[in-house]
Write a protein that binds this DNA or RNA. Sequence first.
DNA 1: TTGGCAAACTAACACAGGTTGGCGCGCGTT
DNA 2: AACGCGCGCCAACCTGTGTTAGTTTGCCAA
Lengths: 236, 236
Amino acid sequence: MENPFVRKMERHVRLAPEDRAILDGLARQHIRHVAGRQDIEGPHTEPYHTHLILDGWACRYKQFPDGRRAIVALLLPGDLCDPFAFRRGRMDHAIGALTPVTVARITPDQIGDAVRGRPAIEEGLCREMLATTAIHREWIASVGRRSAIERLAHLFCELHLRLTWAGLADGTTLPMPVTQPDLADALGQTSVHINRTLKELRSSGLVILRSRRLTIRDLDGLRERGLFDPAYLQPA
Amino acid sequence: MENPFVRKMERHVRLAPEDRAILDGLARQHIRHVAGRQDIEGPHTEPYHTHLILDGWACRYKQFPDGRRAIVALLLPGDLCDPFAFRRGRMDHAIGALTPVTVARITPDQIGDAVRGRPAIEEGLCREMLATTAIHREWIASVGRRSAIERLAHLFCELHLRLTWAGLADGTTLPMPVTQPDLADALGQTSVHINRTLKELRSSGLVILRSRRLTIRDLDGLRERGLFDPAYLQPA
DNA sequence: TTGGCAAACTAACACAGGTTGGCGCGCGTT
DNA sequence: AACGCGCGCCAACCTGTGTTAGTTTGCCAA
């Protein structure tokens, strides 16, 4: 089983064997397990470590005083949280595990060492950050202007590609270990409506979601339904 | 009148006089004027230059095939668009002028030269990018979980701080040169509803918006109404 | 001054999506 | 086996926001 982080980085840049070894090393030290529904990094903390997700799904979220929760990003295996978090002081949001999660803790020094004299790694990390920002922009557009079905279809398409690139999708079938309330908080809706929308996607023959696995039955159809254009995810 | 870009950078890091001169130099070369409603950088182009907004307001936006437009970021004087855009290939969105705009075109080399041997500038640019990402996250939360009034109040609070830090606000009065349809596309609503919401904010005595200027009559009240916590904008 | 036009503003109506409340299943615990 | 409980699922109802179709205002140009 190959490291999903390395695998993803190789989509951005060509890595020499030593590059690969260095990145792989980051994923093998300081492993930490976090139970589902627990925070990996709480709100208002002053982060020092970066986290690399090795297994399970997590999210960035903001919680309002009255309890409303907005999930602003999904973190999948191979995703790196804030390589430069330590430069910003206090967290303005939290990072929580949606499922049981395995992460590697990485120090700023380790990032610095990995980058030094390794232009491919530097370039790869830079592109990874740009890709993350592009995803953020797409989410703003989604929540702002897509309808409920479009939003859900679009998210499924995005996750399909991201998981494929991390080596975690089985063709057109992907793990989908999150609950409907989680999807609701990610898409700015209620779980009830997510349920309705899911039913509609299912009955149009586009997807099957059962026992935490999503099967896309009609990829082109789903992409059309979600106004999905993979360009924003493509590196270069 | 001081350069809003330099002014903003000084919120992130302490700049030596030479740092300041270098940054100021970037803003004085290759000036370009763009009329309102024109694209500064079209969609699907392969950008080479970075743009620094010197005057006027612009936005990043995505447009769907059926015409719907989502504004995913507002660009104010002093804002730098994509210092690393050239690393990503094709644009996944467009940058458009909302008002007549003056920009400085900056090449990748110029960025490289400015950063080389100038750790304060490097650190400042890095923090500026992190702040931009934090704004993106806050927008996702806003469009996803805030009500219409909360969203508008929150946006006004954000713009108040950003413009203040760029030296463009007069205490609690700020330029607001965008139309209601523009606000609608930025907040994921219709212009009709923006109008309704504006009326409500006005009649609760929180703001006055007249002839392209916004006056905040009750800053604390507006912040409360918008669930606004300036933490996400604060550098370190 | 007048005319033209974009933008602000409004009213009436429509509907997507939120709210509430309830049922049943699967699963882990005792 | 029984219990608890989170989650998926559903129906009825409600409401915030969208839609449509105007009128009014303000500003620039002739």
